[in-house]
């Protein structure tokens, strides 16, 4: 149970508002240098969890340790080791990108170079532009830059790529991979499953305030959820079968005499697995 490598450690975390349980007994660890994704539908409790770990909200029950410290009692030295990219920001931004980053860099004992961080988030051309004049996606990149300027040991990313175009998202992935290579531990929430698959080592899927599955990206959902699907069309009628031996299925089809229409062999993506896990959870809740 004792894991000296855990940067974040959560046991039986609970948060209730009145008699509504926003988080209902969540447990997980995030190890040093690991990128952990918290996935789940809107309102599942992702942001509440992350905000408890950031020290913005108080938990109702359970235990939480971030860098070995209870976030309820996190002091400034503790905050100096964290980076936070919050879900929503709307500052008026009467300062330039470069001014804002230089100012925030001063808060930290060992900050990154402002020029390098501006380049890392792809805002070189906007360094001298007022933040209020940036587009939504560019402002979001400023948020990310402010999150990493302090050279955090642990970085919280709460839906960091909302509003990014595909190119900016790829660019952001490169940045995260760079941070990972430097040993930064990352807790990520996102609605983009391809992003989670691309970036994270492990993921937890949260629904209705409960963790419905947790594991490495290629283990989530268990072996059963990864069984390939063979799809084809037979006289215009859609056919589908799940099988661990798709080659044999296709061979059987061919032996039946003719090339099947629209033949596909699909290996479930993280998105398919995620949707199935959430659907399964919702079904269970409906029955219960």
């Amino acid at each position: 149970m004792t894991d000296s490598d855990a940067v974040v450690s959560v046991r039986d975390l609970r948060k209730t508002y009145g008699n509504l349980a926003a988080i209902d007994g969540v447990s997980f660890d995030i190890h040093r240098g690991e990128t952990f994704a918290l996935l789940g539908p809107n309102g599942a409790g992702k942001s509440t969890t992350i905000e408890i770990l950031e020290g913005y909200r108080d938990r109702t029950g359970g235990e939480a340790f971030v860098l070995g410290i209870d976030p309820t009692h996190g002091d400034l030295a503790w905050k100096a080791r964290l980076g936070m990219v919050l879900q929503s920001t709307g500052e008026s931004g009467n300062v330039t990108v470069s001014e804002q980053l230089t100012h925030f860099a001063g808060f930290y004992p060992n900050p990154r170079s402002v020029t390098e961080v501006i380049a890392a988030v792809g805002l070189e051309g906007k360094a001298k532009t007022m933040i209020r004049k940036l587009s939504g996606g560019q402002r979001r990149r400023v948020d990310v830059a402010l999150g990493i300027i302090g050279r955090p040991e642990l970085l919280f990313l709460d839906e960091p790529t909302t509003g990014f175009d595909p190119e900016a998202r790829r660019h952001f992935w490169d940045l995260i991979n760079l941070l990972k290579s430097e040993g930064t531990t990352i807790l990520l929430t996102t609605h983009y499953l391809d992003e989670a698959a691309q970036l994270s080592d492990r993921a937890g899927i949260i629904a209705g305030g409960r963790l419905v599955d947790i594991g490495s990206i290629d283990e989530l959902g268990g072996a059963e959820a990864r069984v390939p699907i063979v799809r084809w069309r037979d006289n215009g009628v859609k056919q589908e079968t799940r099988t661990p031996t798709p080659g044999a299925v296709v061979a059987d089809l061919m032996r039946a005499g003719r090339e099947p229409d629209d033949l596909q062999i699909i290996r479930p993506s993280l998105e398919d697995i995620y949707l199935e896990l959430v659907a399964r959870y919702e079904e269970k809740e409906r029955v219960a």
């Binding site: 920001t89 709307g90 500052e91 008026s92």
Partner: peptide, 12 residues
Amino acid sequence: DGTLKRFGGTPL
């Protein structure tokens, strides 16, 4: 507008 929330997450 979230300015103070952002400061709250920094060692300021």
